[in-house]
Amino acid sequence: MTPKIALAGLKKAFGPKTVLDGLDLEVAPGESLVIIGGSGTGKSVALKCILGLLRPDSGSIRIDDQETVRLSGRARERLMTRVGMLFQGAALFDSLTIWENVAFGLMQGHGMRRAQARQTAIDTLAQVGLDADVADLAPAELSGGMQKRVGLARAIAAKPEIIFFDEPTTGLDPIMADVINDLILKCVRTLGATALSITHDMASARKIADRIAMLHQGRVIWEGPADTVHHSGNPYVEQFVNGRAEGPIRMSVRA
């Protein structure tokens, strides 16, 4: 079976600082892969490369066996209509109301009319547990957890084939984090979408992942089914999963 997303030999450096150093990774259709790793190991950069927000220095990114690194303009926009993304800080447009945020991709990418898009937005908000009365509020009027839910609604509103999650539970209390995890699971299953998440929250990773890959210094150093992450036998993974300061991973205090 061809993988939904296939990264091969992905490299990216900012000036003298190498962030991705030959990253290889495959995600099967319908699978939920979680990339774990400490801060500054290249998780976000990898995600931005796949989304086309950054251009890798070399390597290939294939989605449905189609090379996407060189895509731009219309072709990139067409690809994006099949993709949803939940940003770390939700990244809601604060000049628009909640429903306009959720319906944004439907109206811009899919050309849906406003009245119909509003109804779809309200239905999608219901899926993430939000009432119709938040639809006309501004994003700033919602709490962080609710903004995350709206961000999730926006990511799934256009029924994407692939959904990306950037630190979906960061900055939330443990209960709200678990609510978001449940919603992610439910939404991904309902859509039958392929999911790629990055996180350093192990509770979240265990819950939403079918498979986990650990990134260290721009490469995948371990990957395997989610339930094996606790007895991986890999000293790097052991250290990360158990959150120990001592171990093979050295946290450089200075960047």
């Binding site: 994006m80 809601l92 811009q108």
Partner: peptide, 21 residues
Amino acid sequence: AEIGTMRVTEQIDALTTLSTN
């Protein structure tokens, strides 16, 4: 200020992922 805030809060990246230039 508006576009700068949109940049640092990833709203501009969000536009791109929603098929909007």
